[in-house]
Design a binder for these strands. Structure first.
Length: 437
DNA sequence: TTTTGAGTTGTTCGA
DNA sequence: GTCGAACAACTCAAA
């Protein structure tokens, strides 16, 4: 039996410019790619989850791309903690390669896999693939992490060289793949894994829209305009290479800065994993949040009586996407107008967003609530009406998602703006004053 | 060590 | 209608 080298695809569902795959091919022969539908993750997801559908479609495309070069992608449904060691035993594998994932649960899983493989005398090595700079690569001169974006961003740009953007030429070592026609295995169907195949809309294209990037600073804040690239889902699942995208973004500083925010939040999650549950600025955890089932429902369903908020929530519920400007508005509204805990909103987004990324989601919500790294000062309370006047003055976006807006059936505002603003300023002030304890 | 300048995306108020 | 200042100081980063 041929001795195999394993490459484990996770959130890097592409062949070209794949750092870990390149390393596997360069270091070993008979490289066998594998993907696992992880039951530990899937068990929490609803039957119609569009992300599972996206992954399934993408894995099918990946398998087809492998097939064109005579390689068979092995796709399993199960627990990687059992499957990977089982494969290692079965095929006398000595090396398993993958790309690093920085979420705490992924880190724990990978550590457990590493321990199991070690017992089997098999190495397990990860590569940096999903960010340009990770961990300690962009830190202050004293070695500590940045907690303010702008100096991080400047250092990030100073550190960037052509080397960081160079594509990994996987094709060069394509001869090192395991080529074995007999090894073909079918991909488990969605139904077999307990999911339905109903698709609510077409997924965004993976093509880089250069015209959107070049005009990004002018159109990115107008939700009625197609002014954002919609590439976030592809970054999430690695169907696009971050190096390729950064290369295409060097000409537009605003857009590049957004990609740097992504590295920034990933870095923050790595250094401060407890920010998933706790405010980065711990004194903000003293805030007394309200909870009202009906108000929270109104927010979730897009029935707050503030049309920009409602349009955003309905876009999210119907498509799994929400325009970035509107994400800030709805998040601010939940935390500051309704005084609901940012964690509730973060979890709701986590359930609904196709492009859900833990680091960015937690970072964004903490930013909106005022408690995160480099967050908006708490007294900056977005006014949902002036946001609408500025960014959707003709109600174009609103009418698309809230067709009954303007008619009798559209609800009255659930809270009055001026009153809500004064309440939140008072509540935050009380929590943040040490004397109030 | 101390000092200095600066800090994603806003709003409101009053002149 | 337009403009600048206040909002609240505070902490961070770097010299």
């Amino acid at each position: 039996m041929k001795q195999l080298t394993l490459f484990w695809h996770r959130r890097d569902l592409r062949i070209s410019d794949n750092a870990g795959l390149f390393k596997a091919l360069k270091n070993g022969t008979n490289v066998q790619p594998v993907f696992i539908f992880d039951t530990q993750i899937l068990k929490h997801l609803p039957k119609g989850d569009q992300r599972v559908l996206f992954i399934h479609q993408t894995v099918s495309e990946l398998a087809a791309a492998y097939q064109q070069i005579g390689v068979s992608l092995w796709v399993f449904h199960g627990n990687p903690l059992e499957l990977i060691p089982a494969l290692v035993k079965e095929h006398q594998i000595q090396h398993v390669f993958c790309n690093r994932d920085y979420e705490p649960e992924a880190i724990a899983r990978d550590k457990a896999v590493y321990e199991k493989l070690k017992e089997l005398n098999c190495t397990f090595s990860g590569s940096k693939d999903q960010v340009i700079f990770e961990k300690e690569e962009v830190v202050k001169p004293d070695g500590n992490p940045y907690s303010v974006y702008t100096p991080y961003m400047k250092r990030w740009k100073e550190n960037l060289t052509d080397f960081h953007l160079k594509a990994y030429p996987v094709e060069k070592y394509a001869g090192n793949f395991h080529q074995d026609e007999k090894a073909k295995k079918p991909i488990p169907s969605l139904a077999a894994m307990g999911f339905s195949e109903v698709q609510t809309q077409d997924f965004p294209s993976v093509q880089i829209p250069s015209s959107i990037i070049s005009n990004y600073q002018n159109t990115r804040d107008i939700p009625a305009i197609n002014g954002t690239t919609r590439l976030s889902v592809h970054l999430r699942f690695g169907t696009i290479s971050i190096r390729e995208l950064v290369k295409a973004s060097l000409s537009n500083e605003k857009f590049l800065n957004e990609l740097i925010w992504r590295d920034f939040y990933q870095m923050i999650l790595y250094w401060y994993p407890n920010t998933i549950h706790n405010a980065f600025k711990s004194e903000y955890d003293r805030i007394e949040w309200e909870f009202d089932e009906h108000l929270f429902q109104a927010w979730c369903e897009g029935k707050t009586g503030y049309p920009l908020v409602d349009a955003g929530m309905r876009e999210l519920n119907e498509t799994g996407h929400m325009h970035n400007r509107v994400r800030m508005v709805v998040a601010s509204f939940l935390c500051k107008h309704l005084l609901h805990d940012w964690r509730l909103g973060e979890r709701y987004f986590a359930e609904k967003l196709l492009d859900f990324e833990l680091a960015s989601n937690v970072g964004g919500w903490q930013w909106a609530a005022g408690c995160g790294v480099d967050a908006a000062p708490y007294f900056r309370v977005f006014n949902p009406t002036s946001q609408q006047e500025k960014f959707d003055p003709k109600f174009e976006y609103i009418k698309k998602w809230v067709p009954e807006f303007g008619s009798d059936t559209y609800p009255e505002p659930v809270v009055e703006h001026k009153w809500a603003r004064e309440r939140i300023l008072e509540r935050y002030k009380r929590a943040l004053k040490p004397t109030s304890e």
